[in-house]
């Protein structure tokens, strides 16, 4: 028998220790995820090796909360792997999904056509003013862009779009900041930079799911 357990997060379940979200578009695969049907419901496996947010949840990083009516600004949406699972969670909110490169964006658009709460945006996270026509103040600002200037870009967006009591989540890939420096040195620098303008709630490495990645959760102050 399978054990299926509810979690604190809407539509997020643990099925035999695997993280799964209830598929809000049953029958539709957003990428090549595994699915499972239990009674009348279809669940999508959320693989922590493919999604850093799933890894962060499994590592029980403090402060990660997503409510069903949250609006999320997601920077570096890529082809929508993680975004699609958040889409299962925020059934009454939006995920403003910013992606710069048009190759992954094509896949993201196809997912967004089926999932109404995904708002795809072809944009550069380093120019947050360019998407203020549709993006409103958000409950969560999430960033995973693997770029040299990622901390600066994150803070820019947090200051502009995160509401006062909002949560920021930042995934840092040390290699994209500097390939030579030791990851720990880089995390220290990022931490100092964050501390200047926001409050760090928790930070953890994503090992064993992801090498050389650090996940920060922050509050605005």
């Amino acid at each position: 028998m399978r054990t299926i357990k509810k979690t604190d997060i809407n539509n997020l379940y643990a099925i035999d220790k695997n993280l799964c979200t209830l598929n809000t578009v049953p029958g539709f695969k957003s990428y090549d995820e595994k699915t499972i049907k239990i009674k009348k419901d279809e669940y999508r496996f959320w693989n922590p090796k493919k999604s850093k947010l799933a890894a962060a949840i499994l590592k029980q990083i403090k402060g990660i909360q997503i409510k069903k009516d949250d609006n999320i600004l997601y920077l570096g949406a890529a082809s929508g792997t993680t975004v699609s699972h958040i889409s299962d969670i925020v059934t009454e909110g939006f995920i403003y999904s910013v992606e710069m490169s048009h190759t992954p964006l094509r896949d993201l658009i196809l997912v967004a056509e089926k999932r109404r709460n995904i708002i795809p945006i072809h944009g550069d996270a380093n120019k947050p003013e360019e998407y203020s026509n549709i993006v409103e103040k958000c409950d969560i600002v999430y960033q995973d862009i693997a770029q040299k200037e990622q901390t600066k870009i994150f803070l820019k967006n947090v200051l502009k779009y995160l509401k006062k009591e909002g949560i920021g989540m930042l995934c840092i890939k040390s290699r994209s900041i500097d390939v030579v420096k030791k990851p720990d040195e880089i995390y220290k620098i990022v931490e100092e930079e964050l501390k200047k303008s926001v409050k760090i709630i928790d930070a953890k490495k994503l090992e064993p799911f992801e090498k050389d990645h650090m996940f920060f959760v922050i509050h605005k102050s």
């Binding site: 939006f94 048009h102 993201l108 658009i109 056509e113 109404r116 709460n117 945006i121 072809h122 549709i134």
Partner: peptide, 29 residues
């Protein structure tokens, strides 16, 4: 209502992004 709003916002963004992708799929690609 909210559902109609979501529908319209989503199709606006989807169509706009599609247009941008089409333009960006340039000859160099």
């Amino acid at each position: 209502n909210k559902t109609e709003y979501a529908k319209q916002l989503n199709s606006y963004a989807v169509n706009y992004a599609k247009k941008k992708v089409k333009e960006a799929t340039a000859r160099d690609f």
